Simulated assay, not measured.
Amino acid sequence: MDTLIATIHIIACVMLVVLVLLQSGKEGMGVIFGGGSGSVFGSSGAGGLLVKLTAVFGAVFLITSLAYNSYTGRGAKPDTSVMEGAPIEQKAAPAENKKPGQNLFEEQKTPAEQKQ
């Protein structure tokens, strides 16, 4: 079922791209007042047909997006984490008997040696 929804979704995506690219851009204020060039689709251009087809394929795109999301999301458990099986890093243990200002590479002396 998810293959069918994904296939229809991809076809709708490709058709939306093609339909949007086929539409001509606005040429300026002359288009508002009835100006514009004649074309194969008639004096008003292909606007009516392409706008309707774009709306139809946009609706198909929306419906397939929601259907695929609801179909694939039914088996998901909201209380699980994606990090559940991740390995845990072990941090190095802090240096023992380190005094403030003491160099880490300096050899540490025992208390008996420090008294001397």
Score class of each variant (00 low, 15 high):
M1S: 11
T3V: 06
I5D: 09
I5A: 15
T7R: 10
I8D: 04
I10M: 10
I10G: 04
I11S: 11
C13P: 01
V14H: 02
M15V: 09
M15R: 03
V17K: 01
V18R: 02
V20C: 05
L22Q: 02
S24N: 09
K26L: 09
G28W: 06
G28A: 04
V31A: 12
G34K: 08
S39Q: 06
G42R: 00
S43P: 07
S44G: 14
L50T: 05
A55L: 09
A55R: 00
V56P: 00
V56S: 00
F57N: 01
G58Q: 05
G58F: 11
A59W: 08
V60H: 00
F61R: 01
I63N: 06
A67K: 02
N69L: 14
N69H: 13
N69T: 14
N69I: 14
Y71R: 02
G73C: 12
R74Q: 15
K77Y: 10
K77W: 08
T80H: 12
E84R: 08
E84A: 15
A86Q: 09
P87A: 02
E89F: 07
K91D: 03
P94S: 05
A95D: 02
K98E: 08
K99Y: 06
Q102C: 06
L104A: 13
F105L: 15
F105E: 13
T110I: 13
Q114E: 15
Q114N: 10
